[in-house]
């Protein structure tokens, strides 16, 4: 891996240096499919970049990490360029100082790959209206993570208010295996749903989101209850002829029970951030199902 440091630099110099490094390695053109902009704190940088690089193995990308440092220092842009084995694409870690912290978009915009999608990801705190954020406005897809902040459920309610097509949240991606299993269970005719309950550790933002989705789709009230965890532990749906449930206590193997049928075990492991991110990058069109679920969550949210 080649790492190259540039201090007190500009976007133009970074571009030129990237091109130069590529030529030096003898691979001037590669098939990067998107630009992923990661907006995070210095302390989240390592983990986020790791997840992003792993996801980039599935979706070769130029990864731009934007870190805002001390705003009261003199204006300065430092960059760290990485090209090589760890990723099929390129990584640029940008550190912004002084007034420049308010104008990150001026650095990011010239570094975006031409004519390919831009994805913005906030691994920690996110703006209230991601689409109105200067960097968010450059992106077609804006990924937040409600679970990373203190009150994740409130965060989702706020994000729902500022929703724009292209927004998604990793707490929604965490639900895909659950939703997939439930949808598969409903592929066989089941009776009308009377009521249901989703159980998870207290404050887990995915739980009310799953409940909101089920309510939205099945037209019956689905509540959220606390459990010992870890994460989501069960979904119980009361049907006309009994209870359909998926329960998981060890974060790996779940049991599916339905009326009149034997219980069956299904692998349902929690996924890493890299896997969640890779799923997000697979579809870059707006997720209307998420929109409906998160807006329903916000409607019933009493903060």
């Amino acid at each position: 891996m080649t790492t190259f440091m540039l201090t007190d630099t500009t976007a133009g110099k970074i571009s030129a240096q990237l091109m130069h490094l590529r030529h030096q390695m003898g691979a001037p053109a590669i098939g990067m499919v998107l630009t992923l902009v990661v907006i995070c704190d210095e302390r989240d940088q390592y983990d986020s970049l790791r997840a992003a690089t792993e996801a980039a193995r599935e979706h070769p990308s130029r990864i731009l990490v934007v870190i805002s440092r001390e705003a009261d220092e003199a204006n300065r842009l430092d960059a760290e360029l990485r090209i090589g084995e760890s990723t099929p694409g390129e990584v640029v870690v940008l550190r912004l100082y002084g007034e420049l912290t308010e104008h990150a978009d001026s650095v990011v915009s010239p570094l975006l790959l031409p004519d390919t999608p831009v994805v913005a990801w906030w691994p920690g705190a996110a703006p209230q209206v991601p689409a109105k954020d200067p960097i968010g406005a450059l992106a077609q897809r804006r990924i937040t993570d409600a679970k990373a902040v203190h009150d994740g459920i409130k965060e989702l309610a706020i994000l729902a208010k500022g929703y724009a097509p292209g927004d998604t949240d990793l707490s929604w991606a965490r639900l895909t295996p659950w939703r997939s299993l439930l949808a598969a269970a409903f592929d066989q005719p089941v009776g009308k749903l009377k009521k249901g309950v989703v159980e998870a550790t207290a404050g887990h933002p995915s739980a009310p989101l799953l409940a909101a989705w089920l309510t939205e789709r099945l037209g019956a009230p689905v509540k959220v209850a606390d459990s010992a965890g870890p994460g989501l532990t069960s979904v119980r749906l009361s049907l006309a002829d009994g209870e359909l449930s998926v329960s998981r206590s060890d974060a790996r193997l779940a049991t599916l029970s339905r009326p009149g049928q034997p219980d069956r075990n299904v692998a349902l492991a929690r996924r890493t951030t890299a896997e969640l991110l890779a799923e997000e990058l697979r579809r870059l069109d707006s997720d209307e199902i998420y929109e409906a679920a998160v807006k329903r969550l916000a409607k019933s949210y009493k903060g």
């Binding site: 895909t176 409903f186 592929d187 066989q188 005719p189 089920l214 009149g260 049928q261 799923e279």
Partner: peptide, 25 residues
């Protein structure tokens, strides 16, 4: 009766949890 009926395209289409726009599933 034990398993309900087989998954057919029609039953799957009537599944309230599925939606053609839900491409994650």
């Amino acid at each position: 009766a034990v398993a309900g009926t087989a998954t057919t395209i029609e039953v799957a289409a009537a599944n309230p949890l599925r939606d053609p726009r839900d491409k994650r599933l």
